[in-house]
Lab assay of single mutants.
Amino acid sequence: VPQRAWTVEQLRSEQLPKKDIIKFLQEHGSDSFLAEHKLLGNIKNVAKTANKDHLVTAYNHLFETKRFK
């Protein structure tokens, strides 16, 4: 089981690129989880459509539901 890579403050910070969060989610989330949160596909394309709040919610949801690969 992966550990949380970032704190809530870090997740919301401008310093953390959306692409980093997407990469983490794609590496650790199950396909059904990723599909549900519309996070499947090319990281660049996902970054265009997903806002930061959406990614933070998905990140927290992944750990709450433990839907890891």
Rank of each mutant, 00 (worst) to 15 (best):
D20V: 12
N42M: 11
V46H: 05
K52F: 07
D31C: 15
L11D: 02
T65D: 08
I22V: 11
S32H: 09
N51L: 07
H28Q: 08
G41D: 07
F63L: 03
I43H: 11
K52Y: 11
L39T: 01
A5Y: 14
K23D: 07
E9R: 01
K66R: 11
T49Q: 07
V56W: 02
Q26D: 01
E9C: 06
D53I: 05
V56T: 06
V56Q: 02
F63M: 03
N51E: 14
R12Y: 15
F68W: 06
H61L: 11
S13W: 02
I21D: 00
L40Q: 10
I22F: 03
I22L: 09
R12N: 12
E9I: 03
P2W: 03
R12V: 13
V8A: 12
P17G: 10
H37Q: 09
Q26H: 07
E64W: 08
S30T: 11
V1N: 08
Q26R: 08
L11C: 02
L39I: 07
D53G: 07
L55C: 05
L25G: 00
A5C: 15
V1M: 09
D31N: 12
K44C: 15
P17M: 08
Q10V: 05
L62D: 00
T65R: 10
F63P: 00
Q15N: 13
K18M: 14
N60V: 15
V8H: 08
E36N: 06
A5R: 15
E27P: 00
T7Y: 03
Q3A: 09
K48V: 12
H61E: 12
L25N: 00
Q3N: 10
V46S: 05
H61P: 01
K69T: 06
G29K: 00
Q10C: 08
K19D: 15
R12W: 15
S13Y: 03
Q26Y: 04
T57H: 11
E27W: 06
L62K: 00
E27D: 11
L62R: 00
T65F: 13
D20K: 10
R4E: 13
D31K: 13
L34A: 02
P17R: 10
K52Q: 05
L39E: 00
H54M: 13
L34N: 04
E36M: 08
D53P: 05
K69P: 04
A35G: 08
F68G: 03
E9G: 01
D53H: 06
K19S: 15
N45K: 14
V56L: 04
W6G: 12
V56A: 09
Q3H: 10
S13H: 04
D53A: 06
P2N: 04
N60K: 05
S30I: 06
L25Q: 00
H28E: 05
S32E: 09
G29S: 10
Y59W: 03
S30Y: 02
K44R: 11
V46I: 09
L11M: 08
I22E: 01
E27H: 10
K44D: 15
G41Q: 04
A50N: 07
H54R: 13
L55H: 00
I43D: 06
K48S: 13
L16R: 03
L16T: 12
N42Q: 12
Q26K: 06
Q3F: 05
E27F: 07
E9T: 04
G41E: 04
V8W: 05
